[in-house]
Nucleic acid binder design. Structure first.
Lengths: 171, 171
DNA sequence: GGCCGGATGTTAGCGATGTCAACATTGGAT
DNA sequence: ATCCAATGTTGACATCGCTAACATCCGGCC
């Protein structure tokens, strides 16, 4: 007694779920991503996601991996000096993604090989552009911290990203 | 028909709820804090918290404010150079608190004056010890970023905090 | 071609959570 | 002593993650 107006099988539910979760992430941040809502947007029953992801964490890990790849690419072509601003800009433009990628999830999903590989690759891009490893680490830490502080509105006074960047970055 | 073996009124539910939430935070991180569980631990009905906090966010904001005060004090007495390691150590020892204090909440609860004041005070401690404002910002960003990266296990290779700190901080 | 098993979705339901509305109890000001 | 506002309670609703049991479909085998 199927009254479905669509094929029983979706075609590429996995990708559709990731896309839906992605939209939720950008709209409302980490907390706004729910399996059920993603399923709803994919036009599928609430539990269909479990055929493609072990649990919610796995879905989020897959999402983060996807973004790490894209993130690494965005950094890739640039000079060392241009990476910092690009890093911060990404965080401010896509806070949800940034928080997902660098958040408790990374630790929680440490067994996910795709995620680990993707995040390592992103660091590689930075490392290769830096003169030495200590500089790479310092720069990464500073830019990462700046991104978080700006994102959280933790900086007193001017929260204008460009102004803060100019004041902080050398050159 | 009251069968309560305790006074109907708690005495200081607000503080008790904060303490309970605090314990939850330290035990299981942000996600593990629930109003209902906090109420349970305070020995009170699930909705009693709403007499003291508008919603969950308000409870968390109050908690964060409390921690900011203590955090500012912990940084207060130190020299500029000693602040960095202290900052990172705090983050690693109390990841839940750290993530709560510097997280989406700060933005979500920007109207909470207590929270804003407390977080501003913490930056003041750092600012006063630094030679100038730009140095303060740079140092803060770097240490903050380092704390996050270590917390998330995002650093490739050695994640030993002391080793990383030694390699990154000047001196 | 027809069967048949694994992959993919579905329905039903459990326990937990945040929140609201309506009601109960209490302590303190008058 | 009385009454009110502060404080707690009960009951309920919608949502969520997740499991179990069942339905449907596609592709490979005879």
């Amino acid at each position: 007694m199927s009254t479905l107006d669509r094929p029983y099988h979706h075609g590429d539910l996995r990708a559709a779920l990731l896309d839906a979760a992605d939209a939720l992430l950008d709209e409302g941040g980490d907390g706004a991503v729910s399996l059920r809502e993603a399923a709803r947007r994919a036009g599928v029953s609430p539990t269909a996601a479990y055929r493609h992801f072990a649990d919610k964490t796995a879905l989020l890990a897959a999402l983060a991996a996807r973004h790490f790849a894209q993130f690494g690419q965005a950094l890739g072509g640039r000079s060392f000096d241009a990476m910092g601003p690009a890093y911060v800009r990404f965080a401010l433009e896509r806070p949800g993604r940034f928080r997902l990628m660098f958040g408790p999830l990374l630790r929680a999903a440490q067994t996910d090989p795709a995620l680990q590989a993707a995040s390592a690759a992103a660091f590689q891009a930075l490392r290769q552009a830096a003169p030495d490893e200590a500089s790479a680490l310092r720069a990464w830490a500073m830019v990462h911290g700046l991104a978080h502080l700006l994102l959280d509105g933790a900086l007193p006074g001017s929260n204008d990203p460009d102004a803060v960047l100019a004041r902080v970055l050398p050159g």
